[in-house]
């Protein structure tokens, strides 16, 4: 766990869970942003000072997820996020500022380019997901190391699956020592243009992903739901 004492947007003291190795690190956590704070208003981008002993001073481009405070579905999008001069930098997007405080979820990896050692630990394994009645898994990638997991998952809600949930997706054989709250994007068959995506916050715990469709998706038909994240093992990341 690292504590970020200073930032340029009035965000107070922020703690993030971290895994660090040579040329590579993972950050997990949530940042609350108050768009009415004077410091935020004048900031061009969000900057958080990393601890002086943080190994990485500069990273390639990574990402974070902005989750707004809009009711029912918390619309949001992807943000650019990177490390520069020992600062965690996040793109500032003001699209949802008028809806009050928003959250930024960071479940991301950061790499230094040109690092020629072993970036990912040699031990890595893939597992198979089961396919429960409610959902059909379309694409899945799962990588597990001693220290973290990486998951990219796209699944469809079946037409027969109605209501708000909560729904639970049992993910067989994944690490059970990961406990996180992670943003999940979804959209529907119509592919309607809108600003950002519908987002819900899911909980991954003991190998099960649980989430709601709070707006009742019965009329949506086959919803495509997707998430990508890196999660550090053995630690509860967001409380």
């Amino acid at each position: 766990m690292i504590t970020l004492n200073h930032n340029n947007f009035g965000g107070g003291i922020i703690t993030l869970n971290e895994f660090q190795s040579n040329g590579f690190c993972i950050l997990n956590g949530k940042i609350v942003v108050n768009p009415t704070h004077p410091d935020y208003i004048v900031a061009d981008r969000l900057e958080l000072d990393l601890p002086s002993d943080f190994l990485m001073s500069k990273s390639a481009m990574s990402s974070a997820v902005l989750v707004s405070n809009i009711s029912i579905y918390r619309d949001g999008t992807l943000l650019r996020c990177w490390i520069e001069k020992k600062k965690l930098c996040i793109e500032k997007l003001t699209v949802w500022d008028s809806f009050g405080n928003y959250e930024i979820y960071i479940y991301s990896a950061f790499v230094e380019r040109g690092y020629r050692g072993q970036v990912i630990p040699a031990y890595i394994q893939s597992v198979v997901f089961n396919q429960p009645e409610l959902f059909r898994i379309v694409y899945k990638v799962y990588k597990e190391t001693h220290d973290f997991i990486f998951m990219a998952l796209l699944f469809n809600k079946k037409n027969t699956t109605q209501g708000q949930g909560p729904f639970t997706l049992q993910l067989t054989s994944i690490a059970t020592d990961v406990s996180i709250q992670v943003p999940i994007f979804f959209d529907n068959l119509t592919g309607t243009r809108r600003t950002g995506n519908n987002i819900v916050i899911g909980t991954l715990e003991n190998g099960s992903l649980t989430f709601n469709y709070p707006g009742d998706t019965s009329s949506f038909g086959e919803i495509r739901t997707y998430l990508i994240f890196y999660a550090i093992r053995n630690i509860t990341n967001v409380t």
Binding site: M61, S63, S108, V111, K143, A152, L154, G191, R224
Partner: peptide
């Protein structure tokens, strides 16, 4: 694109991922 949303005029791709 594996979702039902189509690519429009300008699409950004960014992040750090693991190949499969």
């Amino acid at each position: 694109n594996n979702t039902f949303i189509k690519f429009h005029n300008r699409t950004e791709f960014f992040g750090t991922y693991i190949t499969s």
